[in-house]
């Protein structure tokens, strides 16, 4: 492997991680401002113009918080859990391409890290299935009943909705005839898969919101019943890491939805100006993030039994049905 290639890959990795970290900081502000508008409040607008320095202020405040480890806690796992939670959120984007091949300074670059691997979609599923561990371990290691309940609940929830999530991926995979993310985007050149797979897109959105524990599926941290769920005992930067994981996953899920169903970086004039790719992708991702925040402002939280019944009795059969119908139509039309 040549040095230039090594530098290129390291730079790409750093950029992807910066996208998630910077996105996390400003997504919190975005969410608070949007929620405030929807609830006819003003929201944070004191720190800097339009409150733009609010994430910085929040970060500084969290750094100066006291780091507390409960006496009942299992120390090693208690410290490890936030790390295990954050890492999957940071590496999920590795298989998402940010744009087509561009030529800069006489060399051509792929705007993505590993978007052409032939197991790209499975990689997304594998990484998101590892993300469960951080929350479970945090709940157990805290040595607190509420935290444990929150952790156990979220395990059940995430394992259940992972199935529906995987089934929603099968539609685009069958249409593109490949598990490579590049091929799936290329298959959407003429028509986005959201039009061919409306049910699949709906299942994906619902399952994804449940998988990242966002409202109305934010069971693990239902504050009325569980104090704060799995992160009740965490403070300071360790709490910030859980927060970062949640928003990082929100961003990653929006990128994945935009790529699998909304044509990814594709848009008008993309062939003439390839650098428009990241801009199109950014617009789609922000629209999806707005949608997720909007959901939080609109729906009350599900009850736990409703959540499980919905996942297993409605979402999973619908996902299977979608796979069968898509398969039959592909065979009939001659794919």
């Amino acid at each position: 492997m040549s040095l230039a290639l090594l530098i290129e890959w390291s730079l790409k990795s750093v950029v992807i991680i910066l996208v998630i970290l910077g996105g996390f900081a400003y997504l919190t502000l975005f969410e608070r401002r949007v929620l405030a508008r929807m609830q006819t409040r003003i929201g944070p607008n004191r720190a800097g113009p339009w409150g733009l320095l609010q994430p910085v202020a929040d970060g500084v405040k969290l750094i100066f918080n006291e780091e507390l480890i409960p006496a009942q806690a299992d120390k090693v796992l208690f410290l490890l859990a936030p790390v295990i939670t954050v890492v999957p959120a940071l590496i999920l984007l590795a298989v998402i391409p940010f744009g087509p091949e561009v030529t800069l300074f006489g060399r051509s670059y792929y705007l993505g890290l590993a978007s052409n691997v032939n197991v790209g979609v499975l990689y997304i599923l594998a990484v998101s299935s590892i993300a469960v561990y951080g929350i479970v371990i945090a709940g157990w290691a805290s040595g607190n009943k509420y935290a444990l309940l929150g952790g156990v609940r979220s395990t059940a929830q995430m394992v259940s909705y992972e199935l529906a999530l995987a089934l929603a991926f099968v539609g685009p995979i069958m249409l593109a005839g490949s598990m490579s993310v590049d091929a799936i985007i290329e298959g959407q050149r003429h028509l986005w898969y959201v039009i061919l797979q409306p049910l699949g897109f709906l299942i994906f959105l619902i399952a994804a919101v449940a998988e990242i524990n966002r409202a109305p599926f934010d069971m693990p941290e239902a504050e009325q019943e569980l104090v704060a769920g799995y992160h009740a005992e965490y403070s300071g930067m360790k709490f910030a890491l859980f927060f970062m994981a949640e928003y990082g996953k929100m961003i990653a899920v929006s990128f994945i939805a935009a790529t699998m169903f909304l044509g990814g970086y594709l848009g008008p004039f993309i062939d003439r100006w390839p650098l428009l790719g990241p801009i199109y992708l950014f617009i789609k991702v922000v629209a999806l993030l707005f949608f997720i925040v909007w959901l939080r402002a609109t729906f009350p939280r599900f009850r736990y039994d409703q959540l499980m019944a919905f996942g297993w009795k409605i979402l999973l059969p619908l996902g299977l049905l979608n796979v069968v119908v898509t398969g039959v139509i592909i065979v009939l039309v001659g794919g």
């Binding site: 197991v119 599923l125 594998a126 299935s129 590892i130």
Partner: peptide
């Protein structure tokens, strides 16, 4: 990837 998803993940 299947090893991670099925054994480690599920």
């Amino acid at each position: 990837v299947v090893q991670v998803t099925v054994y480690a993940g599920a």
